[in-house]
Amino acid sequence: MQVTWGNVTVTFSNPEEAKKYAEKVARKLGGQVELHNGQFRIK
């Protein structure tokens, strides 16, 4: 499962870890987490 924002992509084998990481990054950037085609995207 991947977490992407800007031109950065981070890949996780565990979807739960990916979700936690995406939420943490979104909080830092003041963005929203979207699940899109099996990727968490931060907008």
Score class of each variant (00 low, 15 high):
R27L: 11
E34C: 15
E16S: 11
R27H: 10
H36W: 10
F40M: 08
K43C: 15
E17C: 15
K20H: 10
Q2H: 08
G6Q: 06
K28W: 15
V3F: 05
T9M: 06
Q32P: 04
F12G: 00
Q39K: 09
E16G: 08
V33G: 00
V10L: 12
N37R: 04
L29H: 07
L35D: 06
W5P: 01
M1Q: 06
G6M: 06
E23Q: 09
Q39W: 04
E34P: 00
K24Q: 13
E16M: 11
G6R: 05
W5S: 03
V8K: 08
A18E: 00
A26H: 01
S13R: 11
N7W: 08
K28N: 08
G30P: 03
H36F: 12
K43D: 06
L29E: 04
K43Q: 10
Q32S: 14
V33D: 00
N7I: 06
T4D: 02
A22N: 00
A22V: 04
K19A: 09
V10G: 01
L29T: 10
G31E: 05
Q2E: 12
E23N: 08
G31Q: 06
V33A: 05
T11E: 09
L35N: 06
N7T: 10
H36N: 08
G6V: 03
A26F: 01
K20Y: 10
E23M: 09
Q39Y: 07
L35G: 04
G38A: 03
K28M: 14
G31T: 06
V8A: 06
L35K: 08
F12D: 00
I42G: 01
R41S: 07
V8E: 06
A18P: 00
V8L: 08
N37A: 05
P15W: 14
G38M: 04
E23C: 15
V8Q: 07
S13V: 09
T4Q: 11
M1E: 03
R27D: 07
V8N: 09
E17N: 08
N14V: 06
L29R: 03
N14Y: 05
E17T: 11
E16W: 09
T4L: 12
F12R: 01
L29M: 12
K20P: 01
N14L: 07
N7G: 10
F40S: 02
M1C: 15
K43E: 08
N7K: 09
V25D: 00
G38V: 01
L29N: 04
V33N: 01
E34R: 05
T9Q: 04
F40T: 03
G31H: 07
V33S: 02
K24T: 10
L35S: 07
E16D: 12
Q32E: 13
E34F: 09
V10Q: 05
V3E: 00
K28L: 15
W5E: 03
M1R: 09
P15Y: 15
P15R: 09
G6E: 07
R41H: 14
R27E: 11
E17A: 14
T11K: 11
G30N: 10
K24P: 00
A26T: 02
F40A: 04
G30C: 14
A26W: 02
E17H: 10
R27Y: 08
F12C: 12
T4M: 11
H36D: 11
K28V: 14
S13W: 08
K24C: 15
L35T: 08
T11I: 13
M1G: 06
F40W: 14
A22M: 04
L35Q: 09
A18Q: 00
G30R: 07
N37M: 05
V10T: 04
K28A: 14
K19L: 14
G30S: 06
G31P: 01
Y21H: 03
N14T: 13
Q2C: 14
Q2F: 06
G38R: 04
Q2V: 14
N14K: 07
W5K: 02
R27M: 10
G6A: 07
V33L: 07
V10K: 10
W5N: 03
L29V: 13
Y21Q: 02
E17G: 05
E16F: 10
G31W: 09
T11S: 12
K43T: 15
H36K: 11
T9F: 05
G6C: 14
K19Y: 14
A18R: 00
N14R: 07
V3P: 04
N14I: 06
A18L: 03
R41N: 10
A18F: 02
E23A: 08
G30V: 03
R41D: 05
K19R: 14
A18M: 02
L35R: 07
Q39G: 15
Y21E: 02
T9P: 00
A18G: 02
F40Y: 15
W5R: 03
K24R: 12
G31L: 10
G38L: 03
N37V: 03
V3Q: 00
G6S: 06
L35H: 07
A22S: 03
Y21K: 02
N14H: 07
S13M: 10
L29W: 09
H36V: 15
A26I: 03
F40I: 13
Y21T: 02
M1W: 15
T11P: 04
L29G: 03
N37K: 08
F40H: 04
Q2P: 03
L35C: 12
K20W: 11
A18C: 06
N14F: 05
E23T: 07
V33T: 02
G38D: 06
V33P: 03
K20S: 10
Y21C: 13
K28C: 15
K28P: 01
Q32C: 15
G38N: 09
K19T: 05
A26E: 01
T4Y: 08
V3Y: 01
G6N: 08
V8F: 11
G38I: 02
P15V: 14
Q2G: 07
K20N: 11
Y21R: 00
E16V: 11
E16H: 11
V10F: 08
F12E: 00
F12W: 02
E34M: 07
N7Y: 08
A18S: 02
N37P: 03
V8G: 04
R41K: 10
F40E: 02
G30Y: 05
K24M: 14
W5M: 07
E23I: 10
R27C: 15
T9A: 04
S13P: 12
R27I: 10
N14A: 07
V33I: 11
V25A: 05
T11H: 12
N7D: 12
V33H: 01
V10C: 15
V8Y: 12
T9R: 04
E23D: 10
Y21F: 15
V33R: 00
V8W: 10
E23G: 05
L29F: 11
R41E: 10
R27S: 09
N14D: 13
R27K: 14
V25F: 04
G31R: 04
N7F: 08
K24A: 14
K24F: 14
V3C: 05
V3H: 00
H36A: 09
V8I: 14
G6D: 15
M1N: 09
W5T: 04
E34Q: 08
K19V: 07
S13H: 11
N37T: 03
T4P: 01
G38F: 04
W5Y: 10
G31D: 03
F12I: 04
S13I: 10
K20D: 11
K24S: 13
E16Q: 09
K24L: 13
N7E: 11
V3S: 00
Q2D: 11
K19C: 12
K43M: 13
T4F: 08
S13G: 09
A26Y: 01
K28D: 09
V25R: 02
K20G: 07
K24W: 15
G38C: 11
G38W: 02
H36Y: 11
M1P: 07
Q2S: 14
E23P: 00
Q39D: 07
K43I: 15
A18T: 01
N37S: 05
I42C: 06
V25M: 13
G6L: 09
E17W: 08
K19W: 13
T9D: 02
F12M: 03
G38T: 03
A18V: 01
V25P: 00
V33C: 04
V3M: 02
H36I: 15
Q39L: 05
T4R: 13
G31I: 06
L35A: 07
L35I: 13
N37G: 07
P15F: 15
K28G: 07
F40D: 02
G6H: 10
K43V: 15
W5I: 14
N7V: 08
A26K: 02
I42V: 11
K20F: 08
N14G: 07
T4N: 08
I42Y: 01
N7R: 07
V10W: 11
P15H: 13
Q39R: 08
Q32R: 12
A18D: 00
V33Y: 06
T9H: 05
E23Y: 13
E16K: 07
G6T: 03
V10R: 08
E16L: 12
R27G: 07
R27A: 13
R41G: 04
I42N: 01
E17Q: 12
W5C: 15
I42M: 01
G30H: 10
H36E: 12
E16I: 11
A18N: 00
V25N: 01
V25L: 13
E17S: 11
T11A: 08
N7M: 05
R27W: 06
L35P: 03
I42L: 02
V25H: 02
Q32W: 14
N7P: 09
E16A: 12
